[in-house]
Design a protein around this nucleic acid. Structure first.
Lengths: 243, 243
DNA sequence: AACCTATTGTCCGGTAGCGAACATATGGGG
DNA sequence: CCCCATATGTTCGCTACCGGACAATAGGTT
């Protein structure tokens, strides 16, 4: 690991058997992913599939009114662009970089060819997709039943799990867009968490001070999603060495 | 079509090329699917994949508190048990028959073998899964942003699209479970729709009287989902005849 | 050092849906 | 044909969040 950037910072790529990884490596292109960049737009043709390494990408739906809601979140545990291998080529949702960093991308054609081989990448991609489905389902449940401060905890923990360290660069305004609530609501919820010593924030920087108590405060949705991701990924193929 | 029951009442099976269909036919087992039957339970091993024909199955999550929320709905346009081919084998959610009727089932082993062939069933199943994902995503959005009477419209229309006729056998109590709200709330919302002449209901029977006005009243979520299902399914393979 | 813009804080009334308790009605089984 | 379980209707106070308007503060820029 001579370079600071390595495709294996992405857990799916890291889990590939040596042979499959070697085949993909020449086509993996390092890419900076800046905050706010739209990885894809609703209905748009996708030319690439993305493997975040140090970035986080939000999948969200923007309504006619302009209001939005996050559907799921992807970081170094996954990939962005499942509709490429699911067959639809596009989706009605939007993917936006929520935390800047890097990632690797693969041309759509290369990805599809590899997927069609029916090898390990196919298995990994499908298992990841199932985990993503669980996250979406739980988002629906959480939106229906849980109070904002619990949802905020869920969101913070899910985001932190996909980054190094305990700090997020993220304004309350942006969090409000993700959660699909007013910014004022986030101010209030975050204020409570700060008053209780769970987090500390200032002007776009949020630090989680007490992760243990955070996990006590969050609704069950977080654990459901986490458990399912841990169960499904990374998929170690019995008897096959990864690099 | 000599029998009243035919696997091709399910749109996915109907879209299979003749050859693939013939290969599966001996393993397709007709099955009555009674109201309330749990097709699968959270975390449970699935022995079969199900293709509803005249029934509707709800995918829902039940929380620790007992409260529930529907995640998606499946009828003759789809299949139940995607985790079998996605690789996870189980899911944290529950699948319950919401409208009794029939379906066909396929042993897990047969399904997996067929899927691994990389043929048309694989393509169809994955495209259906993407449509299902859209439905889940839109459920999350709808839960966040839309009023109960609009959500009720969405739910009624999605259900009707998966049945013959314009009538549902469904109590307000059950609808409330699906939507994750109180029964009283459904009574109120349904009362409004009835007062406006859109529907008519009594003791577990709901008739949609004016579908056109219903579609005006529903939130955008319904159209997003419908459009995506129409776009992705059924997937006609160019140049390959189905029976 | 002053400024300016992004970010966060606070207040107001309004409302949708909750939770609980209770009233009414209807239609299939005895 | 009557009964009664099941389904639907109504009320009350309550809370979380909305919508809008506006205040205060901080940190990078000139």
């Amino acid at each position: 690991m001579s370079s600071p950037h390595n495709p294996k910072q992405n857990h799916l790529l890291a889990a590939l058997p040596a042979e499959d990884y070697a085949r993909l490596l020449p086509d993996l292109e390092l890419l900076p992913m800046p905050l706010g960049w739209a990885v894809y737009e609703p209905g748009g043709q996708m030319g690439f599939m993305y493997f975040p390494t140090t970035s986080i990408v939000s999948l969200l739906y923007v309504m006619e009114s302009g209001a939005s809601a996050e559907i799921a979140i992807t970081g170094n545990e996954g990939l962005v662009g499942i509709s490429l291998f699911m067959g639809g080529e596009s989706t009605p949702s939007r993917a936006v970089v929520q935390s800047s960093g890097n990632g690797y991308r693969l041309k759509a054609g290369v990805l599809k060819r590899e997927f069609a081989l029916g090898g390990y990448l196919q298995h990994l991609a499908l298992r990841y997709t199932q985990a993503l489905i669980t996250q979406m389902a739980q988002t629906a449940v959480c939106n229906r039943h849980h109070a904002l401060d619990q949802q905020l905890c869920r969101w913070l923990l899910l985001s932190l799990d996909r980054l190094e360290g305990n700090e997020l660069v993220m304004t309350q305004e942006l969090i409000a867009n993700m959660l699909g609530v007013r910014r004022e609501g986030v101010t209030e919820a975050a204020g409570k968490l700060q008053a209780d010593g769970l987090i500390q924030y200032s002007r776009g920087h949020i630090k989680v001070l007490d992760r243990a108590r955070m996990e006590k405060r969050v609704c069950e949705c977080y654990a459901v999603v986490k458990k399912e991701f841990d169960r499904l990924l990374p998929y170690k193929i019995p008897g096959v060495p990864t690099t």
